[in-house]
Design a protein around this nucleic acid. Structure first.
Lengths: 113, 113
DNA sequence: TCCATATTTCTATTATTATCGAACTATTGG
DNA sequence: CCAATAGTTCGATAATAATAGAAATATGGA
């Protein structure tokens, strides 16, 4: 069981905050649904009807927490969800709720049939 | 697999936002570590060194998202983590990452050995 | 080089959030 | 009823975040 230190808590809080805004949660969902190809910024904005500059700001937040990755494709920028980061976040929450304590039984979660 | 609608996304975003502040994430962690007994407000504030009025504000946010429950014990108020709400949040994230899409393999998470 | 397109960065505005002392409310015990 | 204790609500301030139009930057192609 990994040891969780103060810096980890700060980091996971930041990740949760990044996902804790409706436009950004929608962005992450959309990128997951398009995983692993991801989507270029314009497609995301069109799909979610977010103004370009606003979208850019949200993508920047997600990028700062390493929840999404970006790579240039000519004049486009392609964003993808970072599965590893999401894995770590889920692992943290599981450790907190299911492993470290007995608040939530693992088998009560969807994935653990 | 449960169908996720727009209202769900809003609700989960709000829950993530509630956990996405370091003081509140610490509160939830603390309450989970004391689960299922929970802790009275004063103990939480003492442990985390948060001023009373500030703590009250954070507990209110968590309560609004139903992430914690409260009950009076004489002159004390005892707060407990709401395991069911956490279960739903974890289930949602799992569905998004592992089930609905293939971004994160279930067995890569701690709980699914 | 110049143009068109994609996206970001800048700038400003508005809205939300965090913090905490002070005042208030609730409960128990005398 | 009064005092003591626990906790919340109020009020003010400061900090952070969201939004979006306009200007700037980056890329590729004519």
């Amino acid at each position: 069981m990994p040891r969780i230190n103060s810096a980890d808590v700060t980091r996971f809080a930041d990740m949760l905050a990044a996902m804790g805004a409706e436009p950004r949660l929608r962005i992450v969902r959309l990128l997951l649904s398009a995983h692993p190809e991801g989507m270029v910024a314009g497609e995301i904005g069109q799909e979610l009807e977010i103004a370009g500059s606003t979208l850019s700001h949200h993508l920047d937040k997600l990028k700062n927490e390493d929840l999404v990755r970006v790579q240039r494709e000519g004049t486009f920028l392609r964003y993808t969800a970072n599965a590893q980061a999401l894995r770590e976040l889920l692992g943290f929450l599981y450790a907190e709720c299911c492993t470290r304590n007995k608040a939530v039984e693992p088998q009560q979660i969807l994935c653990c049939k």
